[in-house]
Design a protein around this nucleic acid. Sequence first.
DNA 1: GAATCAGATAAGTATCTGCTTATGTATTGA
DNA 2: TCAATACATAAGCAGATACTTATCTGATTC
Lengths: 104, 104
Amino acid sequence: MTENDIFRALADPTRREIFEKLAHGGLNASALREGMTISQPAMSQHLAVLREAGLVLTQRRGRFTNYEVNPQGLQLIAKWMTKYRAYWPARIDDLNNLLKEMDQ
Amino acid sequence: MTENDIFRALADPTRREIFEKLAHGGLNASALREGMTISQPAMSQHLAVLREAGLVLTQRRGRFTNYEVNPQGLQLIAKWMTKYRAYWPARIDDLNNLLKEMDQ
DNA sequence: GAATCAGATAAGTATCTGCTTATGTATTGA
DNA sequence: TCAATACATAAGCAGATACTTATCTGATTC
């Protein structure tokens, strides 16, 4: 649950992909594997890393385990980024505007 | 210069420390080492990773090399984070408010 | 209760990472 | 011009990481 845990968890592209899938709604581990070429243990291990980083929450439902994004999981990184706001262009202090600007 | 490069570069605590030092002003590689127990080659290698991720900019000045934060270096991550804004509490859409909230 | 299923865990392995020491390349100044 | 300085690069190594196969736990269903 530290800043370091979060950065390390997100440093892996497979875990970012899993995280993005969960952002569209909670899923169990098997459903998460659909469309991904990844073994069951590998998925379980990735989910453990995301869980230990505080990025996802788990909920046992019978023999299924539902995973979902922890709404507060990204706050530590958001806070980290505020330290460097001075380096962002003034006009894109607001992330909405940043996104628009980058899409141009 | 990819999203993956940036996350991987920031996943190392030593590199985040270097990045934070540079956020207070440009420095050359030797000055950066002051106060850190890190060899000269290790510093050089870390700086190369940060540079290749687009997080810092370099400028030769005689036999010194000045390093400074790339103002646009964090934009890819900022953009990445906007994908998950739905999971942030509405009140902290603005990072300023997020910071205040977390400091309570 | 036995078979099945979801998922976690263990153990082994190939690859990656961050460090080290040694050396190379410019630049500077005596 | 020659030594010193600032930094980069090469090569090697220990530990970390992400994967694999095999096995285990617990819940479900027949």
